[in-house]
């Protein structure tokens, strides 16, 4: 088991964002995290990546308690993430953006120079723009790809993807699914937060459904599709499965 959450709660003032969430994740799995807007998906990612501290509960990663670690330490230990809204280093080139993670996020392998590792991460996500372009000149879709390359450059064992498919064309989406599958084949465990059911169902081994900060269902894609509560709470008539 690579990741184990036990009784995670997080409140923002009076709002309960996460309520007693527990979940286990095996190595090499792709977990889909779904739920309506405001269900607490991003909050849960933030808790796992370390940018938010939970009020209760513990997080165990590769058998070790990591609740007290800062997000930069967690990145170095192999938990990396993308952001729902890309946050590039806008005055740096594409290559420099990725190199930050290759240099500071990856403390394991040192044989290959960071520049090469950054370039291969860019190639891996099929980044087609000149790597000397300033990040501020990229569009949203390119920025998402850059963010993914940055997250991969730190050589993660656990990758958290926050709505990375938003705004992609069907063709780009197919590419992305390919990239995510390839990433898993390299032994990376992945958590995907996404609204696109088709993508989630195609990609994930396991799905967790959040609703108002609570976990209301967990199972394989087939089980989730047949779950009555999930259909009531979330899928509704707008989602044709």
């Amino acid at each position: 088991m690579i990741l184990e959450l036990q009784g995670i709660s997080k409140r923002f003032g009076g709002l309960v964002a996460l309520k007693d969430i527990s979940l286990n994740l095996d190595e090499g799995q792709i977990l889909g995290l779904i739920g309506p807007n405001g269900a607490g998906k991003t909050t849960l990612l933030n808790v796992i990546s370390g940018s938010l501290r939970p009020d209760n509960g513990y997080i165990r990663y590769q058998g070790k308690e990591i609740s007290k670690l800062s997000s930069d330490r967690r990145c170095q230990k192999g938990i990396s993430r993308t952001f729902q809204i890309s946050r590039p280093f806008s005055k740096m080139t594409v290559l420099e953006n990725v190199m930050v993670a290759a240099i500071f996020g990856d403390r394991s392998q040192k044989q290959e120079p960071p520049r090469d590792r950054a370039l291969s991460a860019l190639r891996f996500v099929q980044f087609s723009i000149d790597e000397n372009t300033l990040a501020e000149n990229l569009n949203t879709v390119q920025l998402k790809r850059l963010d993914l390359a940055r997250a991969l450059a730190s050589n993660p064992s656990l990758l958290l993807l926050d709505e990375i498919a938003a705004g992609l064309t069907p063709l780009e989406l197919a590419d992305l699914v390919g990239v995510i599958r390839h990433t898993r084949e390299r032994g990376v465990t992945i958590i995907v937060v996404e609204h696109l059911m088709r993508m989630i169902l195609r990609l994930c081994d396991k799905i967790v459904v959040l609703h108002y900060g609570e976990k209301i269902a967990e199972g394989t894609p087939e089980e989730i599709c047949q779950d009555k509560r999930v259909a009531d709470a979330y899928l509704g008539e707008n989602y044709l499965l």
Binding site: G50, S71, Q76, F83, K91, V100, A101, G105, R150, A153
Partner: peptide, 11 residues
Amino acid sequence: QNLESARASGV
């Protein structure tokens, strides 16, 4: 340039 991304990159 971006504190949050820097942290997420291990800085």
